[in-house]
Design a binder for these strands. Structure first.
Lengths: 195, 195
DNA sequence: TTTTCATTTGAAAGGCTGTTCAGTTACATG
DNA sequence: CATGTAACTGAACAGCCTTTCAAATGAAAA
């Protein structure tokens, strides 16, 4: 009954990734079985192994792809100007990039503990790189005397937690649109570090 | 071989809760089996069912107990003074209460999706009550003209995310002690809403 | 000492897990 | 039209899962 029509690997492959991402975001890595993913894709469980060597790698690939997308997009954003302008740019970038990707954000934050140690180390480094981009802005601002931050590392973690938390409760079609939220968060972030 | 010495229910019961909390915090609810919990407690899996009707209830009881502790402790803290003083009090309360309870915080934030819907609703309400305590402070501050917050609900969520994020990366014996971190966070929070 | 009973064991039921692989299908190429 | 092969099935393996329960245990009560 296999191979109903046409060459399918370029259709099934992405569908496996999409379905796995959605199910893992909703129920968690450990709670989702390969058979469930396969059923939603519309194949038998064995067919998944044409697209991933194992379940662990499937998770890791999802998380790595997301973090790479983040880092690439941040680099492409190419934030310019004085530290307050760059801080504004970072805040807006984070919100615009992450809000439409709630499944990726969820998985990337909740499933770290389900990664094999070597995979965890890779993702931790990528996350650290993202954090450092923000910390560099804060450090420059402190050096220029425009930010008052007793500890740039802690301020970095606090701001990122604030921004990431947004992804956990924001729902499209809620009371406020993305633009309004963007303004409010820019204000909160800017305030928290101003002199 | 059962019942090695004395009556054990008052010893085994708490040990089941403690062990379950620790294992679930580390590996996640779905990834921890009743057999693993039992093995760490030092009994067979069947014995756990003297202390919980099922695995789901074991998780729910852990989470509800934690949220009830939070709400009770907050009520006991009895924050007084003008809005900035109460905001300071809330920040310090949150940090002092949550930092020594990282396993509870982890479980309460990561395992919400593994709750049965009726249990989820109960916890969501308790969490909402905690958030409202902060929002009331912000609203009073806005009314008194000492806080500049365009949207108290969003500011509430942002501040709580910032504070909760702390529990995710803080490690005892790190670069900064709890007191130093408390000061820094009080400053960040106070700044973010000041006029 | 005998009885009671809270506590635990050990086995079982019924089902799900990730992964492998020989075999089948249906398309693309020669 | 014949052949090769990418894509998939369906079954199997070995082991784990939660939950139940009759039976065993050993301390406390009578």
């Amino acid at each position: 009954m296999a191979r109903k029509q046409g060459s399918h690997s370029d259709i099934t492959g992405p569908r496996v990734q999409d379905t796995a991402l959605r199910l893992i975001a909703r129920h968690g890595y450990a709670a989702v079985s390969m058979r469930q993913i396969a059923a939603e894709v519309g194949v038998q469980a064995g067919a998944l192994y044409n697209y991933t060597p194992d379940k662990q790698t499937l998770l890791f690939d999802l998380m790595r792809a997301h973090m790479q997308d983040v880092l690439d997009a941040l680099a492409a954003a190419d934030l310019q100007g004085d530290p307050p302008a760059r801080l504004d740019g970072f805040t807006r970038f984070h919100i615009r990039f992450h809000l439409p990707r709630s499944d990726q954000v969820f998985v990337s934050y909740m499933e770290l503990r389900n990664l094999a140690p070597e995979n965890f180390a890779i993702l931790e480094k990528m996350r650290r790189d993202y954090e450092t981009a923000l910390e560099d802005i804060l450090r420059d601002g402190v050096a220029a005397g425009v930010f008052a931050v007793p500890d740039t590392r802690i301020a970095t973690m606090a701001i990122i937690a604030m921004l990431t938390g947004l992804s956990h409760w924001y729902r499209e079609g809620g009371r406020l649109g993305m633009d309004a939220i963007e303004e409010i968060y820019c204000n909160l972030v800017q305030n928290s570090v101003r002199r």
